[in-house]
Every structure is written in C-alpha cells, then in structure tokens.
Design a protein around this nucleic acid. Structure first.
Length: 732
DNA sequence: AGCACGCCGACT
DNA sequence: GTCGGCGTGCTC
C-alpha cells in the first residue's frame, strides 16, 4: 500500500458480500497493510459468528456508523479472487430470481474446505529389518506387498494386500511399518482432444461443424434437437473438443439422475480420461478438490448437476445443457433458478457458446429456435440406423383388462412374445407404491394426509400409508378409523408395486424388477439394479419416471405405458408438454439399439392430441399445436410476460397477497391471475402455491416492482415466496 | 423453576 | 441463513 502512514488510508473500507439473506453487501474495514480487490475471498465477523464472504464491487455504504464497522478477519490469499464475469453473473442471477445477492454467492462458496490447502496425505512404508512379534497370514500378505519399500496410503495398502486396515494399524504399532507424508494428489490428467474421434453420421457431422463454428462469435446458443438415440452426446463432445483446443474449460450440465457411470465411460472413450464430477453425492474432500481445480484451471471439463453452474471457472468457454427440458434443472428452494436459463445468461455475460440438447426440447427453447434466437441443429434419425419404435394406443374403454387388473390383453400378448424372444420389456407407470388411494368398503372412508389433505398412498413393501407431498406416513391400520370395521380396507388403482404383483402372476418364470426411487436400499441399490437391467439381468422392468432418462438399456424392445392419461389432466399450464416429453422419452427406450422396438399406450382418450402426436412419431405436430395454444392464451413463453409462482404458508393468505400484488401493478403491466380452474392451486410439499402471470412491456422492470412490493407490502408477506418461472431470453 | 418450541429481528 | 431474545405452554 502506498501511503501506509497516511491516517486516511488506514481507514480503508470495502463492500463485502456475505452469504446470508440481507439485501445488499455489507461494509467492513480492511486491516492495515492488507490489500484486497473486488472478488477477494475473505472471512468476516457477522453477528455472533464468522462467515465466508467476497469483497464486492461498488462504493461501500457510507451511511453506516463507523464505530459499528468490523474488521475483515482473514484474507484467503491463495484463492483466486472471483473474477468480474462471475461477480456480474451472481448479481444478474440475484436480480432475476429476486434473491438476496449473498444467497447466490453462497452457492459459489459452498465448499469451505476448498479454500484451505489440502493437508498432506499420510502414507505408510515398510521399515527395513523390522519383523512383527508374531507372524500371521494377514501380516505376511502386507509384508509381501510392501517388500519393495514403496509408500502406500493405508486404505490402498489394505486393499492391495487383501486385509483390513486394522492389520496395518497393528504393524504400525509394532513399528514394522512407519508413517510418511505422501506428496499431495497430482492434478488429474487432462482430456486428450484427439483421443478417439467418433465416426459421425452426416447429420451429426453437420451439427458438430455448426457447433464448432459458433466459437469465437460471442454468445451463441445452439439447440440440438434430435430424436432419442440420435447421438446428441457424440455431437456435443466435438464442441467440448473445440473448447479444449481453444484453451477453454467446458461444463456439461445433466439432470442429477442422468449422472451415471455409463455417461462417464462414454466421455472416457472419447477423451481418454474421466471428467471431474460435481453433484450432491460427491464427498466434501472431492468437492474441495474439484472446486480448487476448476478455479486454478487444472480441471478442464466438469460434468455436473445444476449447482456446477456456480463453480468459479478460471476460463469457462462452453456450457452444454443436456436434457435441457428436464425439470431437475429448476431449483425450488432458496434461490429458485433454472440452471438451463442461467447457463444461457452466463454464456451471454462471458460471450461464449452454450449448447442445449434434448430429444424433447422445452417449448421455450423450440420457440427461441423458431425465432432465430437459437441456432437449431436437427438429428431426425437414430445414429444406429434403427427405426423409431412402432407405437400403438390401446383403448382401455373397449380393450382393457378385466376388473382388478391393469395390463390389457394386447400388451400382455406383446410381452409374452418379447419374453419368448429373450428381449426386455418395460412397463411404465409414474406412480410409486402399491395403490394411490385406500378406502373402507363399509363406510367409504378415504385415507387422507392430515397435513396437506392429499390421498395417502399405500406402500405394501413398507406396510405403510405415505403422503407423497409432505412425506407424512403412518402404518396401515387393521380396522377402519372411521367405522371400526375390521379388514374392510381396499386398495384403489395401481402403483408400480401392484403392477409388479400382476406381472409376477402372469409371468412366474420371468425375472421382474421394480425401478422406483423409494425402494429400500437407496440410490446405491438403484444404481446396482439399473446396471442389472443394462446387462440384461431382468426380463420385465416396472418403473417410474426415473427410467425415462440417463440410463440406456440395450436389450429393451418393448415399452408399455400403463396409464398414458396420467398427467394430462393436471392443472399445470405445462401439463401437456411434460406428458409429451415423459412419454416420448420412455417409449424412446424401445429398440434404441437393436431396432424393432414396440410401444403400447394404454389410454381412455386415444384421440387426445398429445397421444396422437406421440403415436405418429410426429414431434412437430405436438410442438406446433402446443405453441399455438400457448400463444392464444398468453402462457409462457408468450406475451412478454413473467410467470411467477407464488407460494405461501396458507392458501387464503397466499391468494390474497397475489391478488394485492396484481392489483397494485402499475398501468404498464397487465396482470392476469390464473385461477384454480385453469391451473393453479396445487399442493406441493404441503404448501399452497399458485401461479400468477404478470405481463409487462420489455422495458418495464418487473423484478424491481415485485421487490419493492415485497419490501413495502403488507407485513405478513414474510413467508411468501415469489419464483420467476419464465426463460429470460427476452431480457438479454 | 426449568425447558422445549416457535416467532421475530439483527446481522456492516 | 443463523443466532439470540423472548413469549408461551407444559412438566418435574
């Protein structure tokens, strides 16, 4: 610092953004002799505790009583300051989502261990000449392995010798082995751009060339719109290769469920190494390593779930959002953002290409491509040359199964043939548990959740009644709680467990398997069972929506949708879109590799336009109709509007606030409240939500209006959450 | 009295 | 988001 002895300079104060829900950056003193720049990561006292923060841009708040100011307690000098582009991104996201900027920063600084240098790894090594007091077979194995004097980590040595770590502890105790410090982990090897170039089909080549050509031209967004199995991944791998050639880092965002070993292997096949992973199940230590590697530039490619978007990349030059239509890119709590949209924003602010890929793009992205905001690359055929599956509706009014059964004769017949051929079948039903409703056949009592009044779902495995909204669960009673009649309860309707029961009756010799997120054993077991299906170790799979994405099942030839109408009747304005996407993805599993796939959609409304478009494999028919309908009703993404989801502690208050917000809107903002009939009163996690559409001219700052309303509105707006649910393309 | 909750405001 | 303060209501 220049004028070190100038008293005025000793009083340096700066803005520091702290990771809490306060409306603006706070002001802190900088210790004498220390220099910080915007983006420097610091630790500061805040109330009774110390928190991480980052020095922020802009003049510090001069209005704060100077004897209230506290001093920065620590400066992380080895951590690279958050760069200008990341800081602008944080501010942008905070403004768009109506969140305090500190809460967005929190997503960037989520790995505190990343900021500490990793302690050296301790290893063990053989001490020359020392022998254990008593020799045992396990000890001998350890001695054999360590004979050459090379140092091992405890766990890898235990594994290599085939013994438990306690054997090693014993030998350490007797000083046969000694502890040594191992060098810190070497940076992971860089992906090799030319490791194994895949042979592309002509359509893939066109798309790949187009993506490569979009580099160096600023913020170009491309949509890869290709049917299931068309090889979108191979195409965007070439974009990653180009980013790497240009010396940039690349980020691939996937819905959490699609982050699979299978995907990592595909990456390895192309680039020779595994990419860095970032998702909720990464251990804190690995998390810290990836965070630091990303910031230093050692890590070149990250494959991650939505939160990876907030990593502090040293030089990010490409984002891929695969399965861009997927709802898992939306975060619902804390900062409610859509990682697909915020990826487009990050690319825009940092002027690099962003690639959105899907077999069933969101209506928003289709519209953006139609309007020329996005470049579109179509892949109309499967890369393997296999034909798309042959889809057929089964009219359940005429050709349904007998009472108490759920699989129609025609579907059963097809399953029989597939089984005889040694092919896999998938029965899809997006309903967990055994039965969605339980009632008393004596008095008609229906089991309802005491917290949110939705039906309790019977789970026969766990012998419990479970609320799928709030998680409440109770055991199944012997007698009806209303009329006390014993053994009078009946299960109504099917869930996957009930379908599995029927399949086991129909196919006693087949290997059946349920794939559902709630089965005992957790994600670990689910991964194992996915692998079993992948390797052909099951004949008939009964699955919920998690079979729709991520995993590729090479032996699957038949898909039966048990209830194709489920989801179409929802009040959600995106119900038709979601159903189309889900069913297209699920039926697309059939014959993806082998060809010759077949699909059956059991329905009571075979003439529904969504199902008709699905069955004719005519995606454009669906999108054109849906886009027209949205345009006509002014639903997103039309009408220059922001769609807001408002949720609050109780229905009446929430509705009241929403109406007040709508009423108070200035003239230039036209406001529509979507009432319960159209859409909006849905129970989600025990909270009433509903959808409010605020339409405003582009130049009108809706976010500012809403923020002001929240700040100055009725006091009871505290529990209220406002969520912007529209893509920001209009505002870039 | 002793404490478990829940609500509320402050945090620079 | 997290903490402390303070009120309520319940138990020893």
């Amino acid at each position: 610092m220049l004028f070190d002895d100038d008293p005025a300079m000793k009083e340096t104060i700066v803005s520091v953004l702290v990771p809490v829900a306060v409306p603006r950056a706070y002001t802190y003193r900088v210790p004498a002799g220390v220099s910080v720049v915007p983006g420097t990561i610091v630790k500061v006292p805040l109330g009774p505790r110390e928190v991480l923060g980052a020095v922020w841009d802009g003049e510090p708040d001069a209005g704060i009583n100077s004897n209230k100011l506290k001093v920065i307690s620590r400066v992380y000098e080895t951590a690279r300051p958050l760069d200008e582009e990341l800081r602008r991104f944080i501010d942008w996201v905070a403004n768009w989502t109506l969140s305090p900027p500190g809460m967005v920063l929190r997503m960037v600084l989520r790995s505190e261990e990343a900021l500490e240098d990793e302690p050296p790894i301790s290893g063990v090594r053989r001490r020359k000449g020392q022998m254990p007091e008593r020799m045992t077979p396990a000890r001998q194995k350890v001695l054999d392995v360590t004979e050459n004097g090379v140092a091992w980590t405890k766990s890898s040595l235990a594994q290599a010798a085939g013994v438990s770590t306690s054997v090693i502890d014993g030998l350490l105790q007797q000083e046969v082995l000694e502890s040594v410090a191992l060098p810190a982990v070497a940076p992971s090897p860089a992906p090799q751009v030319e490791f194994a170039q895949t042979k592309l089909t002509p359509a893939q080549q066109v798309a790949s060339d187009g993506l490569v050509a979009s580099f160096g031209k600023g913020a170009a967004v491309s949509l890869i719109d290709g049917v299931t199995g068309s090889g979108k991944t191979e195409v965007y791998f070439e974009a990653i290769a180009e980013a790497l050639r240009r010396g940039h880092q690349a980020l691939v965002l996937l819905p959490e469920i699609a982050l699979t070993e299978q995907f990592l292997r595909r990456f390895e096949k192309r680039f020779g190494v595994y990419p860095a992973e970032w998702h909720s199940e990464i251990t804190p230590k690995k998390r810290g390593r990836v965070w630091r590697g990303v910031a230093s530039g050692d890590v070149r490619v990250v494959i991650g779930a939505r939160s990876a978007l907030f990593l502090p990349f040293a030089d990010l030059g490409l984002i891929i959002v695969d399965e861009e239509h997927d709802g898992a890119f939306k975060q619902d709590d804390r900062v409610p953002y859509n990682a697909r949209d915020m990826s487009v924003v990050r690319g825009h602010l940092s002027r690099f290409p962003v690639v959105l890929a899907s077999a069933t793009p969101s209506v928003e992205s289709r519209v953006n491509a139609d309007l020329g905001r996005y470049q579109r690359f179509e892949l109309p055929e499967r890369a393997s040359g296999a034909a798309l599956p042959d889809l057929k509706a089964i009219d359940m009014r005429q050709n349904g199964p007998s009472r108490g059964r759920w699989i129609a004769p025609e579907l059963f017949q097809a399953m029989k043939e597939a089984f005889a051929d040694g092919a896999q079948s998938l029965l899809f039903l997006n309903r967990r548990g055994y039965a969605p409703l339980t009632l008393c056949r004596t008095c008609g009592h229906r089991f309802q959740c005491p917290h949110c009044s939705s039906w309790l779902v019977e789970h026969r495995f766990q012998k419990r009644l479970v609320c799928h909204h709030c998680g409440h669960n109770e055991s199944v009673p012997k007698a009806c709680p209303s009329c006390n009649t014993v053994d009078s309860l009946v299960a109504c309707g099917p869930g996957v467990e009930r379908i599995a029961e029927e399949v086991e009756n129909l196919f006693p010799d087949a290997r059946t398997l349920i794939l559902s997120s709630d089965l005992p054993g957790g994600p670990e077991r689910l991964r194992r069972e996915m692998k079993i299906v992948e390797d052909g170790g099951a004949d008939i799979v009964i699955g919920t929506q998690l079979v729709a994405k991520g995993h590729n099942f090479p032996k699957m030839r038949l898909v039966g949708v048990i209830d194709a109408d489920l989801g179409l009747a929802h009040g959600d304005p995106r119900a038709a879109e979601k159903t189309f996407q889900l069913l297209a993805q699920v039926t697309g599993r059939a014959g993806r590799v082998t060809g010759g796939g077949k699909g059956f959609l059991q329905t009571y409304s075979p003439d529904h336009p969504v199902l008709k478009a699905l069955m004719s494999q005519d995606r454009d028919a669906f999108y054109n109709a849906e886009i027209e309908a949205r345009r006509a009703t002014g639903l997103p993404p039309f009408g220059r509007l922001a769609a807001l989801v408002i949720s609050g502690p109780d229905k009446l208050a929430t509705e009241g606030y929403a109406r007040a917000l709508a009423r108070g809107a200035p003239n230039e903002a036209a406001v529509t409240l979507l009432g319960p009939a159209e859409a909006a009163l849905a129970m989600i996690r025990g909270r009433y939500r509903f959808r409010l559409l605020l339409m405003a001219p582009r130049q009108f700052d809706l976010q500012a209006y809403i923020r002001q309303w929240l700040d100055n509105g009725p006091k009871a707006t505290k529990g209220l959450r406002v969520q912007v649910d529209v893509d920001p393309q209009h505002f870039l």
